[in-house]
């Protein structure tokens, strides 16, 4: 078990480092000139003072070779310093830290809503014997995956804010302002959860051990509770890390639609102003969120599926390994 945890931890650290490297490669080494982009933004299109170019090149390390520059940036990032924003001059780490709590609330609520809806749809569809209800329920996820998130947000805004005046249209004030953005964000996620879970449950219902359980005299409810639910949810659990990462990506659109402050809005601003240090910081933080979620999922996984731990090592181990 300890070896398993250590292996996962090392893997997580490696992915984080690699995510930093990839974002560096994209943002600093693609054939565009970062300094030119920065100055375009900073100077608002005026003619650029060569002295300022030189100063910027030095500040961001472009006077060094790419390897040297990469190592400098990496070293700084390891100490928690993500650099400074070009457009505002504020430290990137501070910007992200300020924006994060609002987004965490939004994403957290969305995750809960998505899980409740997704699990509800999948379980009911797998349980019901009424064909029409199952077909209806199973037609919802493809619909949820197909509708653009920004469009859902606008439709909800139109209905609940401008027609019925139930929820505020914009802002970060209070729980009421959280509802519509969270629902918007949850729609796509719930659809994916429902799809993966109902697929998993469908396959589990067909497994031979289900027949064994029925042959013992178990009821449908018991077979679902004792065998199908657990086996059928394994695929969903494994994709949870990716889903939470996508949730973070989704906040870019949702926070823009609802004019909320937060992580997504920060991304949108940084990309619009091509504020490279901020974008890189955000990418690394998003990867970190993914890595941490995946790590938690990986650590919880053996509790659900004992086969993960023994990874092919036969039946020598035995006994109390699983706990």
């Amino acid at each position: 078990m300890l070896a398993y945890v250590l292996r996962r931890l090392a893997g997580a650290a490696a992915v984080l480092w690699a995510a930093f490297t990839v974002s560096y490669l994209i943002l600093y080494l693609l054939p565009s000139d970062p300094v030119a982009i920065m100055l375009d933004q900073g100077a608002g299109g005026e003619r650029v003072d060569p002295a300022r170019v030189a100063e910027l090149r030095e500040r961001y390390g472009f006077d060094q070779g790419p390897v040297q520059q990469y190592l400098t940036l990496l070293g700084r990032t390891l100490t928690g310093d993500l650099g400074t924003s070009i457009s505002s001059g504020a430290p990137v780490a501070g910007l992200i830290a300020d924006a994060f709590p609002e987004t965490a609330k939004l994403a957290g609520l969305a995750l809960v809503l998505a899980l409740v809806a997704g699990v509800g749809i999948a379980t009911l569809a797998s349980w019901t014997r009424a064909a029409w209800l199952r077909d209806l329920l199973l037609s919802l996820p493809p619909l949820g995956v197909a509708v653009p998130g920004f469009w859902v947000g606008l439709v909800l805004l139109h209905l609940f804010s401008f027609t019925w005046f139930v929820f505020p249209a914009v802002g970060n004030e209070g729980f009421a302002s959280l509802v519509l953005p969270a629902v918007t964000l949850a729609v796509g996620l719930a659809a994916v959860v429902a799809q993966v879970l109902s697929q998993g449950l469908r396959e589990a219902w067909r497994a031979p051990y289900v027949e064994t359980a029925f042959a013992k005299g178990s009821s449908r409810a018991r077979v679902l509770g004792a065998h199908v639910a657990r086996n059928g949810s394994l695929p969903t659990v494994t994709v949870l890390g990716v889903l939470v990462g996508n949730l973070l990506g989704g906040t870019v659109v949702v926070e823009t639609v609802f004019s909320r402050q937060g992580f997504g809005r920060l991304v949108e601003n940084a990309v619009t102003t091509q504020d490279i240090p901020v974008v890189q910081g955000l990418v690394v933080v998003a990867a970190a969120v993914f890595v941490v979620t995946s790590l938690l999922v990986d650590l919880a996984h053996p509790l659900l599926d004992p086969r993960v731990l023994s990874g092919g090592r036969g039946r020598a181990g035995s006994g109390g390994g699983a706990r």
């Binding site: 497994a207 031979p208 051990y209 027949e211 064994t212 359980a213 029925f214 042959a215 013992k216 005299g217 178990s218 004792a226 065998h227 657990r230 086996n231 394994l234 659900l304 599926d305 004992p306 086969r307």
Partner: peptide
Amino acid sequence: RGVRVGLVPQDPGTALDPV
């Protein structure tokens, strides 16, 4: 089922719940 009629299934590899 189970009480009056029992079943021994075909494939022992998949007929037991793995978890």
